Amino acid sequence: MTRHITCITRLPIHQDRHRRIQAVGGSGWQDSEETAIANVKHDKSAYDVIEQGKTAKVIVKKHDGREYLKTANDRFLPDNLLSLPDCP
């Protein structure tokens, strides 16, 4: 079952855009970045982001040897995850 990400928890000030997310969340749930990465690696349809009616799958990428979450290129927003509001 795909979880729809509607908010993120950001790390305290971090300049590297590949290391800004601490957790992702939605209605009544929140997963750490580490858990979300493991979930996506196990099931490529584990998470998505819906932005203005368009759906983008969440994928795992690697930068400087570190894995991070991002959305697949949807030709809509350059960074759907980082454009989400902070989780409460």
Rank of each mutant, 00 (worst) to 15 (best):
Asn39Thr: 04
Asn39Gln: 13
Asn39Arg: 07
Val40Glu: 14
Val40Gln: 12
Val40Ser: 13
Lys41Gly: 06
Lys41Arg: 13
Lys41Val: 05
Lys41Gln: 15
His42Val: 00
His42Cys: 07
His42Glu: 13
Asp43Ile: 06
Asp43Ala: 15
Lys44Val: 08
Lys44Pro: 09
Lys44His: 09
Lys44Arg: 13
Lys44Met: 05
Ser45Pro: 08
Ser45Val: 12
Ser45His: 12
Ser45Thr: 12
Ala46Asp: 01
Ala46Ser: 15
Ala46Arg: 06
Ala46Leu: 08
Ala46Val: 05
Ala46Glu: 01
Ala46Lys: 03
Ala46Asn: 05
Tyr47Arg: 00
Tyr47Cys: 08
Tyr47Thr: 03
Tyr47Trp: 00
Tyr47Gly: 01
Tyr47His: 04
Asp48Arg: 14
Asp48Thr: 06
Asp48Ala: 13
Val49Asp: 06
Ile50Thr: 15
Ile50Gln: 12
Ile50Leu: 12
Glu51Gln: 10
Glu51Met: 10
Glu51Val: 06
Gln52Arg: 15
Gln52Gly: 10
Gln52Ile: 00
Gly53Ala: 00
Gly53Ser: 00
Lys54Asp: 06
Lys54Ala: 04
Lys54Gly: 00
Lys54Ile: 07
Lys54Tyr: 10
Thr55Leu: 10
Thr55His: 06
Thr55Asp: 03
Thr55Trp: 01
Thr55Glu: 09
Ala56Trp: 02
Ala56Met: 03
Ala56Tyr: 04
Ala56Gly: 01
Lys57Leu: 07
Lys57Pro: 07
Lys57Ile: 03
Lys57Cys: 01
Lys57Glu: 03
Val58Met: 03
Val58His: 01
Val58Asp: 04
Val60His: 05
Val60Trp: 04
Val60Lys: 02
Val60Phe: 04
Lys61Ile: 05
Lys61His: 11
Lys61Trp: 08
Lys61Met: 10
Lys62Asn: 12
Lys62Arg: 15
Lys62Phe: 02
Lys62Met: 11
Lys62Glu: 07
His63Asp: 14
His63Val: 06
Asp64Tyr: 12
Asp64Trp: 14
Asp64Ala: 13
Asp64Asn: 15
Asp64Thr: 12
Gly65Ala: 11
Gly65Asp: 11
Gly65Pro: 14
Arg66Ile: 15
Arg66Asn: 13
Arg66Pro: 10
Arg66Phe: 11
Arg66Asp: 07
Glu67Thr: 08
Glu67Cys: 09
Tyr68Gln: 08
Tyr68Arg: 03
Tyr68Cys: 09
Leu69Pro: 07
Leu69Asn: 06
Lys70Leu: 03
Lys70Tyr: 10
Lys70Asp: 11
Thr71Leu: 00
Thr71Tyr: 02
Thr71Met: 03
Ala72Val: 02
Ala72Pro: 06
Ala72Trp: 01
Ala72Gln: 09
Ala72Phe: 03
Asn73Lys: 09
Asn73Met: 02
Asn73Arg: 09
Asn73Pro: 11
Asp74Ile: 04
Asp74Ser: 11
Arg75Phe: 00
Phe76Tyr: 10
Phe76Lys: 13
Phe76Ser: 07
Phe76Val: 05
Leu77Met: 14
Leu77Val: 13
Leu77Asp: 05
Leu77Pro: 04
Pro78Phe: 04
Pro78Lys: 11
Asp79Ser: 11
Asp79Ile: 04
Asp79Phe: 05
Asp79Asn: 14
Asp79Lys: 14
Asn80Glu: 14
